[in-house]
Design a binder for these strands. Structure first.
Lengths: 250, 250
DNA sequence: AAGCGCCATTTTGCATTCATTTTTTGTCTT
DNA sequence: AAGACAAAAAATGAATGCAAAATGGCGCTT
């Protein structure tokens, strides 16, 4: 019995207990869903690894019914896949899958930019500008971790400015799928892309200030497309060289 | 006991029976999922209506376990919503929700157009041209039904040409959510939009022939945006006037 | 007669149990 | 010793059972 799951037997906090995390979810299956999703996204389960329900039940301290409900949802979200009679496995993403995901993400951000131009306030733009300069600081200090942190915040700000909850939820879903790969592959952006990306970000800000919707849409798509190439290339080459590090990013 | 569901007690065909529809799905919950999704999308359940599990079980001839699994998935897909301890109801879409959905659809089609330009073959373009002329015929004959049928095929062809299964699946999901509203509201496009839409379609074809990705992206977004206005306006005014008819369409 | 509160019924949420299917293990044959 | 077959063990899929919450109805109060 080789368990694919590293033992972190932390049972679900009883519903009554003060929920440390502020997201309350009365039902058990809801709680399980949130926990399992994070667990998978954070890469705690190896790709394609078999995940016996029983083991997850013990780990979460629940019965199989709510667990199976959560698994079905995760499968619908594209994080895992359910082979009939053969259990759930973490979805293995081919290179092609990743390319597709990146392109859809690019499309969503592109849309977000276009919509943002219709509704964004000057204050929001100012906030993004501040983030931009903060990121520039990280860039100058060669602080990749800080850089990607801010980078992600910028992109999320744009999505938020689009004023479209449906888009936001969809974006979050795809971001999760990709993040899962990031965590496990621990891949980095190329150094050489750094300066380029900074310039692109300036163009993004510029278009945003001018509320140039379709222009921003174009820039964002290309920006993400470039990232896609870098990321995919890196994955194809194999994991980290040790020269660059990154925990997560945009 | 007022049932929200019109009685169409057609139990699920036993797994052994020759599956008339070619989509085979061994597991019961999978079958239930497909059936229920169609059932909801086709508008058989009134908006916001309460749907007792028991009743659905009888209708489908199964026990509650697989049904509940299917409900969770449908909730994740956004078709229904599950209130804790208070059952499932068909998701009620506010006007704002619809606007958001249309915008996301516009973004997805816009992306599809952009990607399609990278990979579409001359044959595929020729096929779309044929559809276009066929649609033009329906337009001349004032045949709205035929018109929308072909219209939908055109948009689906573009999505198919994008060569992105992830995008295609996401597109299908949102299309389902919107179609549900279409079925129940039975709303129509304005007559006045017809000519305009035809012109836009010609521009789409033109950009596609030139493989002008970002241009096509722009045109498609605007095209869908215009439709959005027409559709939302119509919904706001209230259902059909009787002058125009439409079963479904893009 | 209208409003409020209590109790019965229904319904949901989860655990447990049962039936298949898959996987593993052990043995036998060659 | 290697491969194949068969039986045992385990895992999945679905149904049933049980506790808690919600809905509805009834009587009571004012």
């Amino acid at each position: 019995m080789k368990s694919a799951i590293p033992e972190t037997g932390v049972p679900i906090t009883p519903p009554a207990a003060g929920n440390g995390s502020d997201r309350q979810e009365a039902s058990l299956h809801g709680e399980v869903l949130l926990r399992l999703r994070d667990y998978v996204v954070e890469g705690n389960i190896p790709e394609g690894a078999r995940v016996p329900e029983r083991q997850l039940c013990e780990m979460l301290g629940i019965s199989r019914t709510p667990l199976r409900e959560a698994l079905k949802v995760l499968a619908a979200e594209g994080l895992i896949e359910l082979l009939p009679n053969r259990g759930a496995r973490v979805r293995q993403l081919s290179q092609r899958d990743l390319e597709e995901l990146f392109d859809v993400m690019a499309g969503l951000e592109s849309l977000a930019g276009r919509l943002a131009c219709e509704a964004i306030t000057d204050e929001e733009i100012a906030a993004i500008e501040r983030l931009h300069y903060e990121m520039y600081g990280h860039y100058l200090h060669r602080d990749m971790h800080g850089y990607f942190q801010i980078n992600q915040q910028i992109h999320e700000s744009i999505v938020a400015a689009a004023r479209n909850e449906t888009l936001k939820a969809t974006y979050a879903n795809f971001a999760g799928r990709i993040r899962r790969v990031r965590y496990s592959a621990n891949f980095a952006r190329k150094r050489q892309r750094w300066g380029e990306a900074m310039r692109e970000h300036e163009a993004i800000l510029d278009a945003l200030r001018r509320r140039a919707g379709s222009e921003l849409s174009d820039i964002l798509f290309q920006h993400l497309r470039n990232k896609r190439s870098a990321a995919i290339d890196h994955l194809a080459e194999g994991p980290d060289t040790g020269l660059e590090t990154t925990p997560q990013g945009d």
